[in-house]
Amino acid sequence: MADHAHKLEILRGLVKFKSNTQKIWGVLILLTIVTAIEVVLGIYKPEVLMGPFLGMKILNWIFIILTIVKAYYITWDFMHMRDETKSLRRMVVWTAVFLICYLIFILLLEGGYVFDVYKEGYVKTDF
């Protein structure tokens, strides 16, 4: 077990920490900032970001990207994925990411199709 050998830099070496404890607090600050940005955007909903982009509002894409950023730091630093071997990391991350992307793609496409059937076909729920 590579217990005491923690990799102590985040953001591709932009921020380096002296100890593991310090890195934990650093990641907490990062996660808090990201959450704060999400909440502020969620409350004020700037008009600029409400335009459509790839089937969703730009704001929603920003939320999803920020969520993945948070998920990355929770997994890499809190769950110590950064310190695991490359093979263990890939086994866990690639499997999950592939299956989840596949599932989401299929279900959202189907949901959009059903919506179109309700809207443009003969099935009506408008009563």
Binding site: A96, L107, L108, G111, K119
Partner: peptide
Amino acid sequence: VSDALTFSGFLAAYGFSRFKFID
């Protein structure tokens, strides 16, 4: 990993229903 897939199943189903009634 398997639990994550369970949760993503739920969330994807939520997304499905939401896209179905997107308006």
